[in-house]
Design a protein around this nucleic acid. Sequence first.
DNA 1: TATTGTTATACTCTATAACTATA
DNA 2: TATAGTTATAGAGTATAACAATA
Lengths: 117, 117
Amino acid sequence: MMAELGERLSKIGLRVVDASVMMLIDGRADVTSSEIGRVLDIQRANMVPLLNRLEAAGIIDRVALDRKSMAIVLSATGQDLLAKARIITAGFERDLMARIPTEHRPHLVPALNALWR
Amino acid sequence: MMAELGERLSKIGLRVVDASVMMLIDGRADVTSSEIGRVLDIQRANMVPLLNRLEAAGIIDRVALDRKSMAIVLSATGQDLLAKARIITAGFERDLMARIPTEHRPHLVPALNALWR
DNA sequence: TATTGTTATACTCTATAACTATA
DNA sequence: TATAGTTATAGAGTATAACAATA
């Protein structure tokens, strides 16, 4: 399923992890690279090339929070792309849900949320 | 969750993919390397080192089906290990289920099964 | 002609250790 | 003293192409 979502997101030049980061930082001005890594289970060290790529694509900016930490924020371009990513992921989730018999359908997301941490 | 399962299986020297292969071929005498790869989304070429490792560990045997295809079968050692792997995975699934509120619990597996292919 | 098993290899992803600087 | 960001690098996993042999 992740491979399928990845294919759909690749049409707007994004990977699944990119969209995950973008959704995580959307609307917030204080999320650091390390925090993103902790939430998404990505090592601090591996966040660097990931964010470098998003920055080079003009999707995110690094804004100093203090002299040590950097906030990762969506640029205007990033926000436009995220809007498209949300349409794609919503369509993907709709397609998945359609395959589930109606009596089970409303239980999947709550059940998965309960498993999350 | 897969990382957690991997840790538990590592106590008997197995990876998640090893247990997956073992469960897939258990009780069958006609499953080829290519078939395993198709079911588990693993390329034919990448099955080779995987099965070489399982064979070196004495878990599986390669048995000629004809002069071209090889059946991958569990050895006696492999069957013993699989019994242990089933205990571990059953415990893992029990622990996961316990985290889901009872009203959603019976719906998760049927919902996931509906998503499978 | 399609498929199997295999080799070789490039590529991506992930883990680990180490370092500097700042909270 | 703990944490942030970073670099470098090893290792694991995955994808791709090619090959000989057989169905």
